[in-house]
């Protein structure tokens, strides 16, 4: 099993000037490692739609790599996105799924299909150019150059350790993550659009 922040630190080394779209608990993890927050869009609203938003950015900016950190529960809310992405086939699109098997932000209830489904299998059959699955960080780190230089759309499922939040929402510490609307304005200013 992979620690999500350790994984994100590896990805950060490869993002260069790419745009990163994390969601749910991934937003907090990415916020801890990102070195270019003007190009981060932590997508808080509309659970499941991070990959759709990222697809729009990727199609608008084909010369920039776009990385999305999806959750397993999030992807289940929007499975059709796999087909939509594969249809447009953006070469600059890298779709990560943090598969921890639970809804972490609501206390760790299991997702439907846990231990039965294969996200990488579904992405491959939907038509992604490549699909990978990793449960060992060293394995991914040793192949990151190859995987993240491959022509997209690339799908990578990481088996991660759940970081379960079980306190009442009002008692949770502030995430420090930028509001999405502010992040979008910052990205547009940075891109000069």
């Amino acid at each position: 099993m992979i620690n999500q922040v350790d994984l994100m630190a590896v990805v950060e080394k490869h993002r260069n000037n790419g745009v990163v779209v994390p969601t749910m608990t991934g937003s907090r993890g990415w916020n801890a490692v990102s070195n270019n927050k003007d190009r981060d869009i932590p997508l808080g609203g509309a659970m499941g739609k991070a990959s759709s938003f990222a697809l729009g950015v990727a199609l608008a900016q084909p010369d920039l790599k776009v990385f999305v950190f999806d959750g397993d529960g999030s992807l289940l809310m929007n499975l059709g996105t796999l087909v939509t992405v594969a249809e447009k086939a953006p070469k600059n699109f890298y779709h990560f799924v943090l598969e921890n098997g639970v809804y972490a932000v609501t206390g760790g209830q299991p997702i439907p299909g846990v231990d039965k489904l294969s996200f990488a299998g579904m992405a491959k059959e939907a038509g992604y150019a490549a699909a990978y699955e990793f449960d060992d960080l060293e394995d991914f780190a040793s192949r990151a150059d190859e995987v993240l230089e491959a022509e997209g759309p690339v799908f990578i499922c990481f088996k991660t350790t759940p970081e379960i939040q079980n306190e009442p929402i009002g008692l949770r510490p502030a995430s420090g993550v930028k509001p999405t609307r502010v992040a979008i304005k910052d990205l547009m200013a940075d891109l000069g659009v």
Binding site: I41, A46, V57
Partner: peptide
Amino acid sequence: IAIAAGLIAGGK
């Protein structure tokens, strides 16, 4: 809606 928002964020 999300794709359109991403396109706008990317300048389209």
